[in-house]
Simulated assay, not measured.
Amino acid sequence: MSEPTRNRRHSPAVYRRRRLVVLLALVAIIAVIWLLIAQPWRGAATEGTPQSAASPTSATATDLPVPSEDAGASATPAASSATASSAPSPEASATPTAAPCVARDLIVEAVTDQDSYATGQNPQLSIRLTNNGEDCTLNVGTSGQAFTITSGSDVWWRSTDCQSEPSDMIVLLAAGQTVESASPLEWDRTRSSVSTCADEDRPRAPGGGASYHVGVEIGGVASTQTKQIFLY
């Protein structure tokens, strides 16, 4: 009978190779798992993707300008601005195609920031303009604007008395559009005169609850009603 075969013991080099193979396989498995979880290629793809360009906004006139300068007017505009409707502001155009506005289709209103003013408070005057007709063009520049403040039949102040460098500005008013000036004009509660523009001691309007009325004209169209204010 033949002798039973004995298991041969491998050399240490064989065991080292087997351990190396197992270690490499383990490293490969860990690397695959990391790639699936981390997905490092996703960040590179995001960085390389160009962003879509923002849509350009149209250039429009954002407010109705007011008379540029008066000896009794403040050059500092109000901190906030507003339009009277969600419609866009009138669009300035060098070559407007619509016909000129018709006075009967326009409503012009004088607007003040308050109804009454304590001692030391100066009224802020603005214009509200509504187009009840078709699309039309109107000169809303300072050359065609005028505020007037009266007390009874006495005219106390005109914004045009000391106005300097008036300018034209033709805008397109859309049908049904309402706009309001964003930069109000300040009345310093003095009496204006073309001969006293540089005078720092112009007569001051009486207070104590005295009533005054503000009227306005723009583009040759005057407000049909005045805005009443009280000075204290």
Rank of each mutant, 00 (worst) to 15 (best):
S181G: 15
V21D: 10
G141W: 00
R202M: 00
S167L: 01
V102F: 00
V194M: 00
A71W: 04
G209R: 06
L35V: 00
G215M: 00
Q163D: 14
P4G: 03
P90C: 06
R189C: 03
R128K: 13
R191I: 05
E217T: 15
L172R: 15
T160F: 01
G144S: 13
P65D: 01
R191D: 03
P90F: 05
R189S: 04
S211D: 11
A13Y: 04
S143Q: 08
Q121T: 12
A84F: 03
S74P: 12
S74F: 01
T142W: 00
P40E: 04
A31M: 10
T60I: 10
I229Q: 09
A99S: 13
S86C: 07
Q145R: 12
L129K: 12
S195I: 05
G220M: 01
R9P: 08
T95N: 15
N7E: 11
G144L: 00
D70Q: 12
S80A: 12
L26K: 11
A78H: 10
A175R: 13
S74V: 04
I30W: 02
V14R: 10
L20T: 14
G215S: 11
A198Q: 10
F147E: 12
W187H: 07
Q177D: 13
S143R: 05
R9K: 15
S223M: 01
T137M: 07
Q114I: 00
S223T: 04
E134L: 10
A44T: 05
T95S: 15
E217W: 01
A118F: 02
L231P: 12
P166A: 01
S2G: 06
S93G: 10
S153Q: 07
L64F: 09
S89I: 02
W187D: 07
Q124F: 00
W41E: 09
T46I: 09
P100W: 02
E47C: 04
R8Q: 07
V66D: 09
T148L: 13
I170W: 04
D199T: 14
V108K: 14
V194K: 10
A94R: 15
S68T: 10
G176V: 06
R191L: 03
S211C: 01
D161F: 03
N122L: 07
E180T: 15
P50T: 03
S167W: 02
D105H: 15
R6D: 08
L125R: 08
L26N: 13
V14T: 06
V216Y: 05
T196C: 01
E134W: 02
S74D: 14
T178W: 03
D63Q: 11
A99I: 00
R9T: 15
A118L: 09
G141H: 04
G48N: 14
T95H: 13
D135L: 05
Q177S: 15
G209T: 07
G144M: 08
S89Q: 14
C197E: 06
T95W: 03
R202Y: 01
T226S: 15
T60E: 08
G141E: 02
A71V: 02
T160K: 12
D168T: 15
Y232K: 15
T83L: 13
N139V: 01
V179D: 13
T130K: 13
I37V: 08
I33A: 12
S93M: 07
I229K: 11
A210P: 09
G43N: 10
C136D: 06
R18A: 07
R42D: 11
